[in-house]
Design a protein around this nucleic acid. Structure first.
Length: 551
RNA sequence: GGCCCUGUCGUCAAGCGGUUAAGACACCGCCCUCUCAAGGCGGGUUCCCGGGUUCGAAUCCCGGCAGGGUCACCA
């Protein structure tokens, strides 16, 4: 009569290592007190999801601020869904956000002593552990076909019994080693299942770093741990990997809460100490009055690339996500006037418990704040990189005369309340168009929006005088005094009170006069500080525009 | 359906038995002002509902309800 060891040997003849060997190979890390080991473990199944960036950010931040290790592990066990190239893409995208792992998978090869960091390359680690489980009688070969499983489920559904492969419904869980050996030898395909001894009527409790104590029914399902293709399922890979990689905190989406009992069950069966868990809220979206997870299919903002393509600065998105992650972060930014998240102390208990609706207005606000603090010396290089790919028009302008654009971007930057014109790099081109002669000519064709109370002859005459009498190359108040003088000579009031008292005495107030000049120079009733605009355009161009505004 | 998570302005939220229930975004108004942006000031039926405990409940307890998640050889 065969025993479990014989069975294990038949299933994994090539495995000579033991679990103890693995323990020695991946020793407990020697880290300073309090240092945390976290990981971001995506599947290479597509683009970087906004929710994934959030998860990665939290793990990265938590490890870094504790002086610990942040790892990147590729969970590529679902070969059907794997998309070629997406793993490397994930790495590149994360790097754009400054999230670079200390250890893990890299396109050029793994880094770190706890690898491989790609689950498909850890086959023998999983098989070693499973061999051990089989030897102990804690795992078994299950020969059910999809049709068999379907039958079980149909029966359970018809009888309103909890669905699943457990207890009496786990058809193959009591097969003897001999029976299993016989079927394997007969060439029957099988998966390996964990033989749970959990009780559905009891509860397990664990302490979630964010939510506190969570109590759920114990797992009693004999989950698949090794699939037919020889790769492990998530449940098993998570437990094995995070044990041998010596992860201290597993941060993952809250959709994993219901399966945590499985993981705890597995840890227990293996005699390992479970990791701490932090189940993160999921970013949501309002759809027809209902909240739902950001959807890859329906929501462009589900893809991080959407923000990059749209020209949002990476730092702005990071700040927004940190604002979702920790409720005190925003207060901190206001007090410290700092948007550098590396200076912020992240904590689990300041994390909100329910999924935030993605708020693009708030994102834009943070982006304006972030860009508002920066000068052309940092904005321009980033904008150039962006424009190179997504905005050829802007790119051409920057290439032609970077200094000119730099001056435009720096308008009012050193004032106490700097302008916050740009939320994203794509805002730059439309806002600054009028500075460029070709664009100016183009916009002008559509007509200049002069105030109808002035006739063309008057405007033409006034602008001609302006071109001659305005002072150039002087400070703002000197310049504006010359505008006031000009306005007064042409029948405008020079201050608002005077004008409001007796409007019939004047052609308009000084604002109206300035507006004529503004429109002539910018084609618009709105513009940044006119003095700076004039300064940047230069006298020749200003005079030209003033003289030719009306033709 | 079972189980789990979560319910405070439109959105993000502070709150931990006694508060005029902070703050931020968005919106509206005013101020500043040569326009816009920025900035300043102000505005709005916000504690899911019903019981209970208590002198007193957004806060504690019970029961509902709502939203979300999960029940795969996917993660």
């Amino acid at each position: 009569m065969a025993n479990y060891y014989d069975l294990a040997e038949l299933m994994f003849p090539d495995i000579t290592k033991t679990v103890d060997d693995l323990e020695n190979e991946y020793p407990v890390r020697q880290l300073p007190e309090g240092a945390q080991v976290t990981r971001f473990a995506p599947s290479p199944t597509g683009f970087l999801h906004t929710g994934s960036l959030f998860t990665a950010l939290v793990g990265y931040k938590y490890a870094k601020q504790s002086g610990g290790i942040y790892m990147f592990r590729l969970e590529d066990t679902d070969t059907k869904r794997t998309i070629a190239g997406s793993a490397d893409d994930l790495i590149v995208q994360l790097a754009n956000f400054g999230i670079v792992s200390d250890e893990g998978y890299f396109p050029e090869g793994d880094k770190g002593a706890y690898g491989p960091y790609q689950q498909s390359k850890r086959r023998d680690i999983y098989r070693t552990v499973i061999k051990h489980l089989v030897q102990e009688g804690k795992a078994y070969a299950d020969f059910c076909t999809p049709e068999d499983l379907e039958k079980i489920r149909a029966y359970q559904e018809a009888n309103k019994i909890l669905p699943g492969y457990y207890g009496e419904f786990a058809r193959d869980r009591n097969l003897t080693p001999d029976e299993q050996i016989e079927k394997i030898k007969a060439g029957m395909p099988y998966v390996v299942r964990y033989k749970s001894n959990g009780d559905h009527n009891r509860k397990v409790a664990f302490t979630d770093a964010i939510r506190g104590k969570i109590e759920i029914q114990e797992n009693d399902v004999d989950v698949v741990i090794l699939k037919g293709d020889g790769l492990p399922t998530y449940h098993f890979a998570h437990v094995v990997d995070d044990h041998f990689m010596r992860t201290t905190v597993v941060s993952r989406g809250e959709e994993w809460i219901p399966s945590t009992p499985i993981h705890l069950d597995l840890f227990r069966a293996l005699g390992w100490k479970p990791t701490k868990y932090a189940h993160l809220p999921v970013i949501m979206k309002l759809d027809n009055g209902n909240k739902r997870k950001l959807s890859k299919r329906k929501d462009p903002e589900a893809a991080v690339s959407f923000f990059i393509e749209s020209g949002y600065p990476a730092k702005g998105l990071l700040v927004y996500l940190m604002n979702i992650a920790n409720s005190n972060f925003e207060d901190w930014t206001m007090q410290s006037k700092d948007y550098d998240i590396s200076h912020f102390q992240f904590t689990w208990n300041k994390m909100s418990l329910d999924g935030a609706l993605f708020d693009i207005d708030k994102l834009a606000y943070f982006c304006r704040e972030v860009l508002g603090k920066e000068h052309a010396d940092t904005i321009l290089p980033a904008a150039t990189e962006w424009a190179k790919v997504y905005d050829p028009k802007l790119y051409a302008k920057i290439e032609k005369d970077p200094a000119f654009l730099a001056r435009i971007i720096n308008i009012d930057k050193d004032k106490p309340n700097p302008r916050k014109d740009y939320a994203k790099y794509s805002d730059i081109e439309p806002i600054t168009r009028f500075f460029f002669d070709e664009d100016y000519a183009e916009i002008k064709k559509a007509g200049l929006p002069f105030n109808e109370k002035f006739d063309n002859a008057f405007i033409k005459d006034f602008l001609k005088k302006a071109s001659e009498e305005m002072t150039y190359g002087v400070d703002e108040s000197t310049w504006f005094n010359s505008v006031k003088e000009l306005a007064a000579k042409n029948g405008f009031a020079t201050n608002n009170k005077e004008y409001k008292a007796n409007p019939e005495l004047f052609k308009g107030n000084v604002a109206d006069a300035a507006e004529l000049i503004r429109i002539a120079l910018t084609c618009s009733k709105n513009s940044p500080n006119l003095h700076e605009v004039i300064d940047i355009l230069g006298k020749d161009r200003v005079v030209d525009r003033l003289l030719n505004a009306i033709d």
